[in-house]
Amino acid sequence: MTVPRQTATSSASGHATRRRGPSMADVAREAGVSGQTVSRVANGKTNVDDATRERVLAAMRRVGYRPNSAARALRNGQFRSIGVIISALPTFGNSRTLDAIAAAVVPEGFSIILMPVTRPTQGEVTGAFSTLNEQAVDGVIILIEQHQLDQSEIELPHGLPVVVIDSSARYDYPVVDNDQADGAARATSHLLSLGHSTVWHIAGPPQSYSAERRRKSWQATLERAGRPVPPVVVGDWSPESGYQAGLRLAADPTVTAVFAANDQMALGLLRALHETGRGVPSEVSVVGFDDMEESAHFWPPLTTIRQSFEAVGRHAVEALLTEIETGAEAGEPVLLPTELVIRSSTAPPPA
């Protein structure tokens, strides 16, 4: 017989009183098993055969029983929850990496508590950690793009396992990132190999760690090749900023090759070149960075640097869960390789 769900009833004084919800004992009676077996199933133990487990789970659904995660956390010493401190300003890379983190934690039985910060100051970062501590997380992933996180006045609180994404590895925590410098070098070298005398650059915002890494690598690659280093044109990751930068670059007939620090700015650049009559790639070659899904459908299809946000998110979760389970010390930073994807937006310079 199915045990009815408990509901609020009226007391003798006329006030509504809430009675207890379904208990493990109710589930045990419904499933015809012992309370200890129900406890094993509720706590994810493996010493229950599959048929019994399914019978207990079905009984839980029928009576409306939900395991008490807080009580389970006190017993097991884990809350099965991960905090993510993330820049409040959304970017393509951060959004994709966050999706990858979520996809990686769900199969492990963890949930995510998201904590956006407007500016990565000591106060905001410490406040975010304090809030996550109050919400009982087992560890924290930091996904803050701004390189101010690397400045000396920022000190991350201790006491929780931490993994940092997209930073300069100046912390005693595991750091996971795509190899930004290698990707920018690949983009610049590709254009030089086609015969261009130099490569112009539309950089991301100066407060971005990724933008800084890509800009420095672009410059170093030109210097190693003995080529002139043009003035940097700074954007803000948006197509509009790429468009405005493109109007400036299109007015200079000596510009034959441009490396944009992300695909969205490259999209704006392509529009500016089209509107001003500069052919791509017949007059100007363009390389982006990210390999967002739409890049293959730009006109012309965009040559770009592919970085794996999915791999970054997966490696970050793996590193954090290892810290949580073993308390292992931080190893070397994990830098994941990038890939040059050649499409139709690059060619040798005009004769």
Results as ranks from 00 to 15, higher is better:
R213G: 11
Q148V: 05
S69W: 13
I112Y: 03
A102Y: 14
V175W: 13
R55G: 06
R215S: 05
G77S: 06
E310T: 11
K45H: 09
S34H: 12
N94F: 14
Y65N: 00
V284S: 05
A220Q: 07
N262V: 04
S95D: 10
R215H: 07
P349T: 01
R278Y: 04
G139A: 10
T97E: 09
E283I: 01
L160K: 08
E223P: 09
D182A: 12
A12G: 02
E283F: 01
V175L: 12
E339T: 10
R61P: 06
T338M: 10
G77Q: 02
V27Q: 11
S217K: 00
T256R: 04
H297I: 03
I113L: 05
S345F: 07
V125N: 13
T322K: 11
I154E: 11
N262M: 08
N47D: 06
N43G: 10
L320I: 14
V229M: 02
V137E: 03
A100S: 11
G83A: 04
P116M: 01
A59D: 05
Q219V: 12
P333W: 11
E145M: 06
I342G: 11
G21T: 12
A28D: 09
G246C: 15
H315T: 06
G268K: 01
T326K: 03
P116V: 02
